[in-house]
Design a protein around this nucleic acid. Sequence first.
DNA 1: ACCACCTATTCCACGATAGAATAGATACCA
DNA 2: TGGTATCTATTCTATCGTGGAATAGGTGGT
Lengths: 176, 176
Amino acid sequence: MSSLTPDETILGLLAAQARHGYELLECFRSTQQLGRVWDLSTSQLYAVLKRLEREGAIVGREVGSENAPPRTEYRLTGKGAERLHRWLNEPQPSASIRRIRVEFLSRLYIARQLNIAADSVVRHQREACLAKYQQLIAERDQVEMGIDFLALDLHISQLEAVLRWIARCEITPASG
Amino acid sequence: MSSLTPDETILGLLAAQARHGYELLECFRSTQQLGRVWDLSTSQLYAVLKRLEREGAIVGREVGSENAPPRTEYRLTGKGAERLHRWLNEPQPSASIRRIRVEFLSRLYIARQLNIAADSVVRHQREACLAKYQQLIAERDQVEMGIDFLALDLHISQLEAVLRWIARCEITPASG
DNA sequence: ACCACCTATTCCACGATAGAATAGATACCA
DNA sequence: TGGTATCTATTCTATCGTGGAATAGGTGGT
């Protein structure tokens, strides 16, 4: 598992419409949008754009503006769109608490932005969490009281909370 | 807030007894010990030891062994012990889910290893979580349905689970 | 004699990241 | 009209963290 990068989320934002770096940055800063989900620095955003372009998932073109500095507007390529949809439909998403908080919320948001039904996204996430939950329960039964047990027990509690929250997600899909 | 490093946890392990790198590594690998709390690579562990020595929190000395390669055994300095106890008694620990999972569990484990009462550690953590919890509840009331609300609601659910878990911690202190 | 594995640590190349720097345009105020 | 503050937009740089391989001594098996 590689670390948590906004690559696919950016692909999703660009799938909705072509944008330049600064616009994307605002999407990630506004609490109305992804501000509570991601915390990106300027340089990280531009570094990701460079990487995505190098990988052929997006292409940029220089756009001169009358009342602002020149900007580079990026749009999705076919390759990028393919990667985006693989990510959205990931059948076995991570059940890590952190990844749920970031990746799953991003998937929900992007699906909404693209007017794609999110129910399979939610279902996959719930199934992954449930599987992990049952595995942890089984492990906890083998373990004696100690730091080990506490860590497992906390993890299990976190997953229980996630499962209840996901159930609420399913009846109130993300808007905005 | 800097990122999540095992520096103080290592100071704690060295406070219990002088150890060399490989021994510490085993503490971080064994699930009986900190294996479920941290996931350190070899190079990270040695890098931290170098840093702690440079900062004067620990000192290493070469120890020749009969049946193994030479090793560097580290012990805590006065400066290191001071830093360790500041960390253990931190009055306002982070209420971030991730930090609770890692830092708080480490504090509990280290307190136990040093035969120090953990109740103030637990109390500080509960207070920090409760404050954060109430702040998030207030924020949620201001926010309309959307990704923003879902993110807040998930965060709140996670903190509720943590608070219930902490209540259980208080009646069953960590052993081993 | 050789290989595999354990102990113990170092090295290196790469990428991430924070924060400053650059730079053009507009707006405000004295 | 000069100053400076602020917004738009991106790049640069120095540092740090990291994974993975390399190094290296010792031990036990076949």
